[in-house]
Design a binder for these strands. Structure first.
Lengths: 333, 333
DNA sequence: TAAAGTATTGCAACCGTGTGCAAGAGTGTG
DNA sequence: CACACTCTTGCACACGGTTGCAATACTTTA
């Protein structure tokens, strides 16, 4: 049996109400009393019962970090970064509860009473049903990583499109014109955005798009490998390849090496994410930095702010991506 | 305001006690009543208040997954694998709360009432104070990844030592005798175990150890790079290098390439963990598979079993590692 | 038909904490 | 000295569930 405020009250010769007030620094209580109570509490090793606190305060002390179908699409790296960032912000004030959207398909257990706030990492509109559930329940919500077209949703997204456009233009600046593109997973918003960025750069620079330089991928290493193999069958080989994420870039590297070609000597490669993989690989990858940590930090801060102020001024935050230049691009000029 | 059992009771013309029993399938309640209550509950979209449930049942519905100092030492990959595995086991019965040991240094908020069970991923005896706190509080505990010398602690560990020994012997079978070793982070138990495995193999095969072939590392890519550079200064170069994890192996690859040497042509490389990196790299790495998923699954199952049966038969489980043969080792025979 | 047994339900207390309101003690004012 | 005021405390109820026990209705048995 753990120590409760009643135990403290007995020893301090007070009512449990006064003890409760003292522990919460209420100014209704004598300063001396507060000191005494806190001393006894720490001597007894008192730890509040959060179920009781929650029941009485109508809170849960839980912040949910939800991922879409964990079993595909979310990289370990994204996961790790996001979690760490959120954890740092919420500290011990709240517990960080990890869950995936799929397990809560019927939203059976989601409730304002069981989650004080939810941060959702979203990849596609398949999560919209979930978002609606959360909104219905009036739980503070922040959606990361995908633009949600709703005036009711706090949204924090990175500018993937512009990031890719910048990366492609960097290639162009370096004399590349024959630039292939490996797409991300079909149906995922950020994948579409990245493709748009590729188109933007070609439009801006009056370069003709080539259908045979655009190949589908699945975001995993194997798909990058296969996609690159396909690109390498084109008779007029590209001088550079943009891969919609770093993992696929790693796969692409492999396919290029197997063909006996060199990176960046024969073909330049650019990735996206600035994940650890991009610095692991040889050569290290020039890549677009996706500020996952920053996005997640902002998201967590926003959630806390909503909870604490009880005001939800819905906003959409864009966080800039930037190009990380490493060794995988050769200048043709 | 959410729906409560009292709302259901009012509509069903019952007392809230009967509703509670009905929702819990008590056999004290008429079957018809149960059906009626459940129907109303689902129509109203009733979701139990876990704070209230917890308060009355003396439970928290939280399972804690604790990591040691997240900011170093634990790889994103380990993290991801462990979390997914645990999540799959506990499903919706419990919430998965992620935390790191450091944030709970004074164990301020840890309590039998706030955690129904804790799974700790441990790397070194620096976590022992934490383990003791948990034991004091009589919270069901499973420690993963590091052997804890205590008859009170459930322990699930992989046989790293034997795994490394096997890997080294595989090199020996392939004609290697000059085998360097890059150590893991100093002070971490699994790192020591892996080193012992290296020694074991040398002893078993009557090969002389060489001091200049053993170099310290820090488990991250950069340290692997630096360590390998150091090894490459030895006049009599080794024909193979064992790296205590895959990340350092990636660093080592880089150092080798920069020296103008080939893998596995000039030097063979073996890693440890079978992390994604090992299949990304070129060449793909021969590595020791650490069954993180399996360990975590077992750990979660054990926790649930203790909670449900209220019996804690302390046990230590060894899970076998195995060698994954890929492309980074050359046969010298 | 009365007694005993069983099935079903409600009452009331409890889990640990927070809080509105009343009450008491102490202080200051005219 | 009476009154008003402030400071501090305790009482009692609330939060939303669970559960022991009593009460009622119904069934079975002799």
């Amino acid at each position: 049996m753990s120590v409760t405020i009643k135990d403290i009250a007995r020893i301090a010769n007070l009512s449990h109400s006064s003890v409760s007030r003292a522990l919460n620094n209420s100014n209704l209580v004598n300063e001396e009393t507060i000191k005494k109570v806190k001393l006894i509490a720490s001597e007894l090793g008192y730890i509040p019962n959060y179920s009781a606190k929650g029941l009485s305060l109508n809170k849960s002390f839980n912040i949910g970090l939800f991922f879409p179908t964990l079993y595909e699409g979310t990289s370990a790296y994204f996961f790790y970064e996001a979690m760490q960032a959120v954890m740092k912000v919420i500290k011990n004030e709240y517990k960080l509860v990890i869950a995936n959207v799929d397990d809560y398909k019927e939203a059976k257990y989601i409730n304002k009473r069981n989650f004080d706030g939810i941060i959702l990492v979203s990849q596609s509109c398949r999560d919209d049903f979930f978002i609606n559930k959360i909104l219905e329940n009036e739980i503070p919500l922040v959606v990361l990583n995908r633009y949600v077209n709703s005036y009711r949703v706090n949204n924090i997204i990175s500018d993937d499109r512009q990031g890719v456009c910048r990366a492609i233009e960097y290639l162009i600046e370096n004399g590349h014109k024959k630039i292939a593109f490996i797409e991300g997973k079909e149906g995922l918003e950020p994948a579409k955005e990245r493709k748009e960025g590729y188109f933007d750069a070609f439009l801006n620079n009056d370069i003709q798009l080539r259908k045979d330089y655009i190949v589908k991928g699945e975001y995993n290493i194997h798909s990058g490998y296969v996609a690159m193999q396909k690109i390498l069958t084109v008779s007029d080989l590209p001088t550079a390849v943009f891969c919609s994420n770093d993992e696929m870039a790693a796969g692409a590297l492999k396919a290029i090496y197997e063909k006996g070609l060199k990176v960046p000597g024969d073909i330049s490669v650019v990735g996206f994410d600035n994940s650890i993989i991009s610095s692991f690989s040889s050569p290290s990858l020039t890549t677009v930095n996706k500020p996952i940590k920053q996005m997640s930090t902002k998201g967590a801060e926003k959630i806390l702010q909503i909870i604490n102020s009880n005001v939800n001024e819905v906003e959409t935050l864009y966080i800039k991506t930037d190009l990380v230049i490493r060794e995988s691009v050769k200048s043709l000029i």
